[in-house]
Computed example of a mutant assay.
Amino acid sequence: MDPTETLQLWMNEYDKKLLRLAYAYTRNWVTAQDMVQNAFVKAYQSRANLRDKNNPLPWLSRIVINECVSAQRRTWREISFSSMPEVAPVRSAEDTAMKNHDSRRVHDSILMPPEKFRVPIILY
Rank of each mutant, 00 (worst) to 15 (best):
D34I: 06
E78N: 08
V69L: 14
V36A: 10
A24L: 08
A71Q: 07
P58W: 05
Y44C: 04
S109E: 11
C68S: 08
A24W: 05
R20T: 02
S80R: 12
M11P: 01
E67T: 04
P89I: 09
S103A: 13
M11L: 12
D2R: 01
D34V: 04
P3H: 13
E67I: 03
K42R: 12
S82M: 12
L50F: 02
S103T: 08
T31H: 12
Y25M: 02
E67F: 11
M98T: 05
A39H: 03
K116G: 02
M112P: 01
Y124W: 15
M35E: 07
H101P: 02
N55T: 03
A71G: 05
I121C: 11
W59G: 00
Q8L: 07
D15I: 01
S103W: 10
A93R: 06
S70M: 01
P3T: 07
I122W: 04
A39Q: 02
F81V: 04
L111W: 01
S70V: 07
C68D: 07
S82A: 10
W29H: 08
N49G: 02
H101Q: 10
M84E: 15
A97E: 06
S80P: 06
T96M: 15
K53Q: 10
A71E: 13
K17P: 04
V30N: 13
K42F: 05
R47L: 00
R20S: 14
S92P: 01
L18C: 09
S80V: 05
E86H: 11
P56T: 09
E86R: 08
Y25V: 01
A22G: 06
W76N: 07
L7R: 00
T4V: 07
P114E: 15
L18S: 05
R74Q: 15
R77P: 01
S109H: 09
R118C: 14
W29D: 04
A88T: 05
Q45S: 10
E86C: 07
